[in-house]
Design a protein around this nucleic acid. Structure first.
Lengths: 202, 202
DNA sequence: AATAAAATTGCCTAAAAGGCATCTTTGCTC
DNA sequence: GAGCAAAGATGCCTTTTAGGCAATTTTATT
């Protein structure tokens, strides 16, 4: 086994910790969670928590990083001859498939995640960590785009950051839209506008 | 006087504190600055510092917020009949006029600010605060754009966040470009690409 | 099984966060 | 211009975080 037990256990601990952090924050509010509680919940010592994350906020943000990195992964998985923006749309849509007007009866395990997102976007103390997390994601995206298009210079980063902007605006709108709109819709609308160069409507 | 001495003094203290924070961070490195030092430098008590800012990082970021808010201000000041993107370009360019291949001999007072920027973009501990700061700026920008275009929905926020993305990418490229390129150039290039809808180059 | 490498943990100190009461300053009224 | 109310500044205090260091346990390798 290439990675070995050691690596796997580390990942597991990391994920357990960040899930615990999210769960507790959702349950009792971010401010009321001590990192001590998080560590206890995950079954490690307080000190170990600190070996994994620099802060409570980072632990929560880590969940979103891991999720979001999948966009870049998905993008790399798309056929190489697919036009860039088609691939991008597909990658993002796959990522957001969670909130998808979940019919089908079975509550997706993501349902709890939606609450987590809400906490993350709401709690001011978290926004810094989230932003830093997305910066990480942006780098991955830029790399994926650079590889796919063979471009250098600002282009890949520009695209990556603009996608990040779209993600953010869409999520914000999705959370506050009343009546609710589907993420797929919002996403599509936003990407259309971006691809058109955001012309001023008259 | 509408605002009164009270408000003015508060602003002064706020600015003094955040300048002190930036200066000290540039001089001796972010980590080596105690908020106690910052307070002392600005001539207030440690406790007062805390009344103004939630953290050391916020104090530094505040400087960049104040600066960046001028973009929105500038945008509002542009003639109402100017096309949106023309106005946006002008507003951003005015903002970045600092680094402008400063000939003319006199070192702009902004020279120190450039160092400040470098610290802000470099220090990981600061990136969260910076990001939050830019979120503030994004709101102002979105409001300005909404007012100017009379649009609602995602459009204003989308434009604002995309501009933020451009700003970020341009600054990063500017700091790492070797040989150096002028900010105006980079900005122009980035905005061209965005306005064109970021088409994949072939 | 023996040993090296790496992770976990406990202990400890410095620093930060923020509540609360007190004292000053500012703004307003008479 | 004296007095009063509101807002800000300050000091004190407790809880929580941050992170270095060394000891201990666990995993990987030979």
């Amino acid at each position: 086994m290439a990675e070995g037990l050691r690596e796997r256990k580390k990942q597991e601990t990391r994920i357990a910790l960040s899930w615990a952090a999210v769960r507790l924050a959702v349950e009792r509010g971010y401010g009321a969670v001590r990192i001590e509680d998080i560590a206890a919940e995950a079954g490690v010592s307080l000190r170990t928590f600190r070996n994994y994350f620099d802060s409570k906020a980072d632990a929560i943000a880590a969940r979103e990083v891991d999720r979001s990195l999948k966009i870049a992964e998905e993008l790399r998985a798309r056929p190489a001859d697919e036009p860039l923006w088609v691939a991008i749309r597909a990658a993002i849509e796959a990522h957001f498939a969670l909130g998808a007007e979940g019919h089908g009866g079975r509550t997706p395990p993501d349902e709890q995640w939606v609450k987590g997102i809400r906490v993350m976007m709401t709690e001011p103390a978290l926004q810094g960590a989230i932003a830093r997390a997305y910066a990480r994601v942006g780098e991955e995206m830029a790399a994926a785009i650079a590889d796919r298009t063979g471009t250098t210079g600002m282009y890949p980063r520009l695209v990556a950051e603009v996608i990040g902007a779209v993600r953010g605006v869409v999520m914000a709108e999705w959370m506050r839209a009343d009546p609710p709109r589907s993420i797929a819709d919002l996403l599509s609308e936003a990407l259309d506008q971006v691809e058109a160069g955001l012309p001023a409507p008259e």
